[in-house]
Amino acid sequence: MKTAQLEDYLPRPAQVVEVVTENSQIKSFLLRFVDKKHNAGFSYQPGQFMMVSMPHCGEAPISFSSTPATKGLIRLSVRKAGTLTSAMHELKEGSIIGLRGPYGKSFPMEYLAKRDLLFVAGGIGLAPLTSVINTCLADPEYQGRITILYGSRTPEDIAFMAEIKAWQANAAVECLLTVDLATSEWQGNTGLVTSLFDQVAINPATQSAVVCGPPMMIKAVLSALAEKGFDDHDIITTMERHMKCGVGVCRHCHMDGKLVCVDGPVFTLAQLKELNVMEIS
């Protein structure tokens, strides 16, 4: 039985502390609740999301791309996709937005902390995975090996460059990039993110895979991972659906009998296989 939580749908003001332009389509926002007490007591887990309000635009669900290890400051990374997200791209340092949450089930962090981790991301999909990666890296107890495979459309579309550089400089991390369309300067890998699988050590016995990206990518990656011998419980992804309430009432995010906002957004492939889900059908 879930504990009943009183939901009044009331956003709290939060201030933009810093705006980072990740690429032409993605910006990251460092945010702090205006109410200092709320800010100090605020906690969340990687994989959870916030409902973001922008003036006259309604709300949109956005995942944390920050790690809870950094206290008092949250980061949301946003791809320009429509009305609200475009309005967010106009935000400046000092601007105020509305936030309610956190909502949703997080990644199984306790379990992941005991595993080697293979992260596979496409585009903005790296945002929620960044939260998991940096949480593991900030955890002194974490002993595993981290492998990150990140696909972008073109070299200009590679987001989270600051993070990627830090990971590439970290001996405990292997981070490989690929692009769909190379430019003449591009020295790296070209092709789908699955084409990087042969360049890294894959060991389903000790490794769990964490995947996020556009639906077509998720579909291709999930089947490639299953082929590599990963157990369905060790393939973990986060799902995107149209969402309005975030608390399991409005039902916009229905996915067969589940609701992505409260039953997810994090699901294992084992869970998805029990449902009629477009991404794996």
Binding site: G58, C250, H252, C253
Partner: peptide
């Protein structure tokens, strides 16, 4: 249901909840 904003002036508005239906093509 759905949740939308209805501006009243340039600086104010209402956040509304209204009936919606899973059969609407825009629902998902």
């Amino acid at each position: 249901f759905t949740i939308t904003d209805s501006p009243l002036t340039a600086d104010s508005g209402e956040r509304l909840r209204s009936w919606d239906a899973c059969t609407f093509s825009g629902f998902t």
